[in-house]
Write a protein that binds this DNA or RNA. Structure first.
Lengths: 108, 108
DNA sequence: TAATCGTATAAGCAATTGCTTATACATTAG
DNA sequence: CTAATGTATAAGCAATTGCTTATACGATTA
């Protein structure tokens, strides 16, 4: 069961473009160390670190320490509050996503 | 085609709990005047009005004037940036939503 | 051990946000 | 026309946010 606060938290976390970009890079690169994310980022290392903390607190990424590197990867279940919420109101955007309800029930 | 800015805008708009509550009330009540939304809201009429403006600017609701009332209703396509984005990265949360890709393709 | 590398935290600051009260605008009723 | 109702905008303010620089911590290497 997912609370309203969790949904708000996920939305807030993804609502920042820089943080969203970090999240998408983690998605694409599979598992990546913080250093790798700083490389090619417009912002400083502390900024990236703060974004990673926010993503972790929201349950959107998980980390694995390996020596002095910390590798980040996506935690797909972190998106559950968002998906569940979309599913809950699916009848209202049914014209576009007619089968969402069935889909969500099947995947439980 | 939906831009990154549109996605960020939708996320930001839904990320505020008060505004999200207004949006959900519009969903549930179908079509409702601003007055109705102020009733039972924790915040003032101007606050509600500002949230309605934000929702409209994000493309999440549409309005219909009737006399001095303005009725708001959900604009389901406003959620497209969000749904499209989830669909684009579906392989990464496929364990939970295995059929999302097929679904999204069918619904086009 | 000392130096270095990878990462996180602290402190401070400008920008943004969400609210308030006060006021303006738009439409209808008397 | 005047008053009242529904809604929006203006101005101001406290709280939050995202960034920076500086520093600390943790792990490896020389």
């Amino acid at each position: 069961m997912t609370t309203a606060m969790q949904l708000t938290n996920v939305l807030k976390t993804l609502a920042d473009p820089t943080r969203q970009a970090v999240f998408e890079r983690i998605i694409r690169e599979g598992e990546v160390a913080a250093t790798g994310l700083v490389q090619g980022s417009k912002v400083s290392q502390p900024a990236v670190s703060q974004h990673l903390r926010a993503l972790r607190d929201a349950g959107l990424v998980a980390e694995r320490r390996e020596g002095r590197h910390i590798h980040y990867r996506v935690a797909p279940k972190g998106l559950s509050p968002l998906i569940d919420w979309l599913g809950h109101y699916q009848t209202f955007w049914a014209e576009r996503f007619a089968n969402l309800e069935r889909l969500l029930k099947e995947s439980e």
